[in-house]
Amino acid sequence: MRREIPLILTAIVGITFFIQFFVPHSPMRELSETFSDWYSIISAFAIWLGGLNLMKISFEKVYKKDKDWFFAVTTIVSFFLILIVGLFFSGGRQYLEQGSGYDWLYRNIYSPLSATMFALLAFFVASASYRAFRARNAQATVLLLAAFIVMAGRTPFGDWITIYLPEGWRLSNLSNVIMNYFNVAGQRAIMIGISLGIVSTSLRIILGIERSHLGGE
C-alpha cells in the first residue's frame, strides 16, 4: 500500500502520457487531459500545506520568543492580510482586476519587493565579474574572452573601440559569430545531453527503478 500503489500510479500516468503522444484515438487524449487537470487541482491543495507549514514555523518562533520573533509576526500578518483581502474583499473571481484590494497590495507591496530583489542582481553581476572572472587557466580565459566580446558587441561601445576596422569587421560582428555559432553549438550539446538525461530518468521513474521522490530505496 505504501510503496506499491504509488509505483503503479506513477507507471500508469507516465505511460498514458507516453502513449497519448503516438495515439490520437480516444480515450488517450481525454485521459491525459484529465491527468493534467489533476495536477492543477492537487497543487491547489498542496499550496495550503506549504502555507500552513510556514505559519507553523513562524508561530513557533513567536511562541519561543526567538531572536527574530518580531519578524515572524510581520510574516504572519502579511500572509493573512493578502489571504483575507484576496479571498473575501477583492470581488471574488475578478480579484485581479484593477482597483481591487488584491491588486493594490500587488502593485504597491509585492511588485516593488519582487522587482527590487531582482534588481539586486545588477550589483551582484558587477561584483561577480570583478571577483570571479579571472584568467586562472585556459578554460577560464576562454569563458572570459567570450563574455567580454559579447558584452562589448551588444553595445555601441564595441564598434567604437574597433572603429579603425572596416565596417562589417568590427566587434559586434565577432559577437554575432560567437552568439550564432559557438554559443548555439555549445547550447545544443547541453540540450541534447539534458534531453537524454531526462528520457532516461523519466524511464527509470516510470519503471520504478528511480524512487527517491517516494523516499529512497
Binding site: 545531453g193 539534458i194 538525461g197 532516461s200 530518468t201 524511464l203 527509470r204 527503478i209 528511480e210 527517491s212
Partner: peptide, 25 residues
C-alpha cells in the same frame, strides 16, 4: 553541468540498475 545532474543518482548510489541506464543513454 546539465546531464551530469541527471547522472548523479547513478554515480552516487553505484546501483547497477542505475549505472546500466546511464550506459544505455
Amino acid at each position: 553541468i546539465g546531464e551530469e545532474l541527471f547522472a548523479a543518482s547513478a554515480y552516487l548510489s553505484r546501483e547497477p540498475k542505475l549505472l546500466g541506464s546511464l550506459k544505455g543513454q
